[in-house]
């Protein structure tokens, strides 16, 4: 299998007269986690929205599992196996935890209602906190619990690929750590993920490969391990600040998180 699960070619998009993406290419191979990094206004979130189908592409293509979905509606893409953890989590506050999960499984329930119970049990097993709070309105959950709910809501439909938009934004550091554990566990399941993240350390520890976006153009794309430190710093606009610091972060990534993920994987029944 040579083709990537998600293939983006020459994507251009923007709002009104303003071009935000100037021809972006991106591959997300099956079973890999790809992180998109860049400064504010680099077009990261817009790229994710175009892939989701919420913002129309001006030109270029988005292929999911070999099928061109550039012109299809967001809900159709979800039926084809895309799932989302939107920016700011966006749980449905007036619905209960379980109702949120049911909405997340909308496509699955229409396809095969019997699998829903099984998936629901799996999500509750992965996130026991959610099971405790299944009857509570989502608005009453803490930030970390909402993050879990958002991830669970994406996983319940048994997706091929999960698109995650700024998961760590607006969360307290301790919650970010919990969340990292959750996402590493999900990653260890072999799930394909596309991640947009401002917190570079957080993002690099989750991703197998990185895509650096600057002003709507891809300036680096490839393995995180071979990422040129100096260049990363320059492109992210932090210049010479980086030095050896990030190398440490990357070095740690290749060993320690793997162990962590294996530990967490015990609580996630594999699919």
């Amino acid at each position: 299998m040579s083709a990537a699960l998600l293939e983006v070619r020459g994507l251009r998009a923007g709002f009104g007269a303003q071009t935000i993406l100037h021809g972006v290419d991106l591959d997300v191979p099956e079973g890999k986690v790809v992180g998109i990094f860049g400064l504010n206004g680099a077009g990261k979130s817009v790229l994710l929205k175009v892939i989701a189908g919420v913002v129309p592409a001006w030109s270029g293509s988005v292929c999911l599992a070999g099928e061109d979905v550039t012109r299809t509606s967001p809900e159709r893409r979800v039926q084809r196996g895309m799932a989302h953890v939107p920016q700011g989590r966006q749980v449905f506050g007036s619905l209960t935890v379980e109702q949120n999960l049911r909405v997340g499984a909308y496509a699955l329930r229409r396809r095969d209602k019997s699998r829903y119970d099984e998936r629901l049990a799996q999500v509750y097993e992965t996130f026991p906190k959610l099971a405790e709070r299944r009857r509570q309105p989502a608005v009453t959950l803490s930030g970390g619990e909402q993050a879990m709910l958002a991830v669970g809501r994406a996983l319940i439909g048994d997706p091929k690929i999960v698109l995650i938009d700024e998961p760590s934004a607006g969360l307290a550091p301790s919650v970010v750590e919990d969340l990292l554990g959750v996402l590493l566990a999900v990653r260890s399941l072999g799930l394909t993920m596309l991640l947009v993240e401002q917190n570079i350390r957080f993002g690099l520890r989750l991703s197998d490969s990185a895509c650096l976006l600057q002003r709507g153009r891809v300036v680096y794309s490839g393995d995180t391990a071979s990422l040129d430190q100096e260049r990363l710093g320059t492109y992210l606009g932090v210049g010479r600040l980086l030095a050896d610091d990030l190398t440490k972060g990357l070095g740690a990534k290749s060993t320690q998180p793997r162990r962590a993920s294996r530990r967490k994987a015990a609580t996630v029944s594999s699919t």
Partner: peptide
């Protein structure tokens, strides 16, 4: 500023 350690932390997120 460019050489300041805490600035680097602020920008790249505290170590997790």
């Amino acid at each position: 500023i460019a050489a300041n350690r805490s600035v680097i932390d602020a920008y790249f997120g505290a170590a997790v």
